[in-house]
Design a binder for these strands. Structure first.
Lengths: 313, 313
DNA sequence: TTGTAGGCGTTATCAG
DNA sequence: CTGATAACGCCTACAA
């Protein structure tokens, strides 16, 4: 609401002097910091730990053009994380939080919601899907695609190695496998094994699947760790080079498309992590820039993963 | 400088009201933000990309107890990174920067030094070692240890696959191998190959080393990517399981101890990244909390990596 | 030992 | 359309 000429004159002065608005002063006046907080996992469990890192990269990339910045924090458990929210909120006026690794009975979301703090979760709120904006990857679609890929290759007895029931993510991934089998008129009963995550655990579970009455000819796994173990147990493990013919007698598909999968030639399901991060930031920006408007697409975004076929399936 | 009784009364009030000092106001008054900026790499190159992530984890962990927080930024190149410094400095009053991936003719350090901005580098300033506080891992010590490990196992013709000269890190790692060979009275001439980083590149280089007049019986590599390639080229690549006997006819040792090395059973050299991060933060805190004191240990810290023996050597 | 005034750089409000 | 003024919360200095 100012004459264009004046506007230009001011802009020139800004450029000439190299003026930059001071965030601290602005923040004190407006109460907004243009800071978004995200958690970085304390330690790495090697094979699987890198997923959240890649998501974080995406977040930082997406934040920059929107002129937001990402502030890191760590927390050992949900209680500590909530304490950290409290701290960051009162000390830094964090504009919003990005939560990861949602799970059943997640106390973090309700804490934030009660206080009216904007946030998005990367991961569905497994207990109450409509309660807040979230972005997630459709694990069931991924395992279903993997299973159909194996069906097309002629497999009928397709096993599944997953995590104990109740984990949200794990149950979701299992359901895709089960659905694809049902689609093909196959009874999946007795074709699956449950175990904690890990390479050795995957190997043990695979050996179990192979020594049952009718052994499986292919296995879909909940993670690349499990798949790597399965690969070894089925004798299908081998080097890394692209172009090498498929070796194993049992097809194996992992989940997450980690560097290890690439290195070993393991067929795996890749999550669109960068895309997920972009959506998270978009939802947040919508919330922050227009406080009382519905987020676009209702704020619930489910992304499809992609099968990356390699030597093992 | 106040009666203990009064002090207590104030403390009680603080607790009762849940009062927290507002950083924005404090920052405006004092000019310090308790924010430390660190760069997160834009994209991942899979096998090797995770090193800086692990460092970042360490940094976030170390920052928390010192009541600093880590602010992320991304930048495509040095020029963009400097522009980002400028921006963050004037808008957020960043207290200090942690730079990674130092290289020859690094313009970032001089820019910051000229402006009196506190910073540490993770990575030596290859051109002028005494110029500012830094923390680094002694790559030469790592490759020397790896080479000695192979010598002890009876190897004499120990090859090296490294990167083109001029990269600081690469030259350093090569020098350790050369020194260990010289120590044992072996001439390393003709036992090394130079190539860009990558699995395929490593395989090609290894094939080269194996088809020379007197082929090598062991290879030390500049990275796990190269080592993985070498492993395949020498026929030594195989699954992942611990406890499997060593298979290859040529011993191979990688660098960085990435998840891929763990998965494949590749012997590798591990950098103490958490320790490095802790030191970085300590140096920074010393600089920030006592502006004109020499940093402890002169502010130049060289950490020793550790060989992690696995099946391939 | 305790209370009070001023200013850090913005933005919002209100009178010209 | 423009210029002046107050207030955000903290810290420092100075007065009581």
């Amino acid at each position: 609401m100012v004459r264009p000429e004046t506007r230009q004159r001011v802009q020139d002065a800004i450029d000439a002097l190299g003026y930059r608005a001071n965030q601290a002063a602005r923040q004190m006046r407006t109460g907004r910091s243009r800071l978004i907080a995200a958690r970085i996992e304390p330690a790495q469990d090697g094979i699987n730990g890198s997923i959240l890192d890649r998501f974080l990269h995406g977040l930082a990339d997406a934040a920059a053009p929107a002129r937001y910045r990402v502030l890191l924090y760590t927390a050992a458990d949900d209680a500590a994380e909530i304490a950290t929210y409290d701290d960051m909120l009162s000390a830094y006026d964090i504009d919003a939080f990005v939560l990861t690794s949602t799970h059943h009975a997640d106390t973090r979301t309700s804490w934030l919601a009660e206080r009216g703090v904007p946030f998005v979760t990367f991961g569905r709120p497994w207990d109450a899907l409509g309660s807040h904006p979230w972005v997630d990857v459709d694990g069931a679609a991924g395992t279903a695609e993997a299973t159909r890929h194996l069906l097309r290759a002629g497999h009928r007895r397709i096993g599944f190695i997953g995590w104990p029931a109740g984990s949200g993510v794990g149950d979701d991934r299992r359901s895709g496998w089960a659905a694809a089998l049902a689609e093909a008129g196959i009874d999946g009963h007795g074709l699956d094994a449950v175990t904690a995550d890990g390479v050795a655990e995957g190997a043990a579970a695979a050996r179990d699947l192979l020594t049952r009455g009718e052994p499986v000819t292919a296995i879909v796994c909940c993670s690349d760790s499990l798949a790597l173990g399965a690969l070894h147990a089925t004798g299908g493990a081998e080097p890394a080079m692209p172009g090498t013919p498929a070796p194993g007698r049992v097809a194996v598909i992992g989940f997450d498309d980690t560097p290890v999968a690439q290195a070993v030639g393991l067929t795996s399901i890749a999550q669109p992590l960068g895309e997920a991060a972009t959506h998270c930031l978009r939802l947040l920006a919508a919330q922050l820039d227009a406080p009382d408007s519905r987020p676009p697409g209702d704020g619930q975004i489910l992304l499809a993963p992609a099968l990356v076929p390699r030597r093992t399936a």
